[in-house]
Design a protein around this nucleic acid. Sequence first.
DNA 1: ATTAGTAAACGTATTTTTTACGTAAAGTTT
DNA 2: AAACTTTACGTAAAAAATACGTTTACTAAT
Lengths: 243, 243
Amino acid sequence: MVIQLNPHISVDIVVFGFDDNQLKVLLINDHYTKNGKQKHLIKLPGNLIMRKEPLARSAERILTELTGLRNIYLNQFGVFDDPARLHPPESLEWLQDTTSLPIDRVVTISYYSLIKINSGSNNLSLSPEAEWFPINEVPELIFDHNQIVEAGLDILRKEFLTEPLCFELLPEKFMLNQLQKIYEIILGFELDNRNFRKRINRLEYIIPLNERQTGVAHKPARLYKFDKQKYNDLEKQHTGFVV
Amino acid sequence: MVIQLNPHISVDIVVFGFDDNQLKVLLINDHYTKNGKQKHLIKLPGNLIMRKEPLARSAERILTELTGLRNIYLNQFGVFDDPARLHPPESLEWLQDTTSLPIDRVVTISYYSLIKINSGSNNLSLSPEAEWFPINEVPELIFDHNQIVEAGLDILRKEFLTEPLCFELLPEKFMLNQLQKIYEIILGFELDNRNFRKRINRLEYIIPLNERQTGVAHKPARLYKFDKQKYNDLEKQHTGFVV
DNA sequence: ATTAGTAAACGTATTTTTTACGTAAAGTTT
DNA sequence: AAACTTTACGTAAAAAATACGTTTACTAAT
């Protein structure tokens, strides 16, 4: 199995999770014993690719192993190729020990991914080493992984303005205020509720349903759904998305 | 020299050239004799990277070798990793013959670049195999290079709307109509001259000079320059650029 | 010197979009 | 039925985009 790894190219994935109140990143805890000393490293999920494996498939595979989820949104966003990126030497040593390969230089292709953390209905079953960290409490990571997280966040914010990414973080039927909150948390500023609604109402591909929120002690909100088909049909028209 | 090549990773560059009337791509003619048969292959400029070379430096190096130019705008835009991308077999054979390496799978990182073709003042000295092709007359290329050109053009058009790329294609001092023409050619549609000027006049980082066009048989146009410093200072404000 | 030709440069009215607010409506809980 | 909470609708003002018409500054030809 190990013999089939390509020791020159890897993928790393910045898995963003949304839990109704904040944006988080999924990181991997790695406990590693060297010369009797126990070390604790934290890193992005990622690995060397296989000899004949397309990169996107490597990324999917790693994501499924970590979360049990399939068909998750994944987007390639960068290349990290500094010949010295595997420093400091002890991190490189760790990599060589764990792969049993004579690792020299690894160019990594980065992906980001979007997951709804607490939707009761998905079958998210995290692997034991995986842990969610709030986006502004990311600890020090190995190699250049902090830099990759930052780059991923920049791209996420940029693409959030032009692509319908928000629906990856919403249930099939959602309320406009949920949609608004996702924008506010990811973009990092507040939006005027009344103008936001007006804007959404103009979008033909966000369909109001004849269903309402239930079990709340106030006026129940109407539910909406995203019509992806209609969105794609109108695609040539939009250069931006919302906000 | 050859021994230092990394046979797993390459860069390919889509060099866009602008010559006042149309957009062109720089391609490489390769004449190759195999079993007495002469073959003519056309490809993107690109090569395997060196063992310890950053990708951006490989791209710069290749570009300078081809054009004699330095400090040209270069932007990484994609990764092409299909394990079968080096097909058909005869192309792979050619690659193995010319590098003398046991090439198996190559992942390529793509860049695009912007050059003003006919500005008398630059020292463009094309290498003999290099040839400009109008963007809609690109011939069949080896491997997946046609696909890379298409992807590069898509990205160029997209980024032209949000980044100040136009100034890479203009002399230091330029006329508004030159600027407009660049937009029209790259975006592929015409713009209303009067509204375009109004829009530009609002941008504080496009500075009108007290100089005019000379030697023309009509009202001479005012010259302008781009204040990059001011642009960067205002950067947080713009999500889009012009048009 | 006047006129013709050419492209630059300015202006204005109309429509559309964005922004900033105020207020009513529909539920539950007490 | 009164208090509370959140949804939902509306309107006026400012800003931006669009669609045009007209004037200006120069050279070249007569």
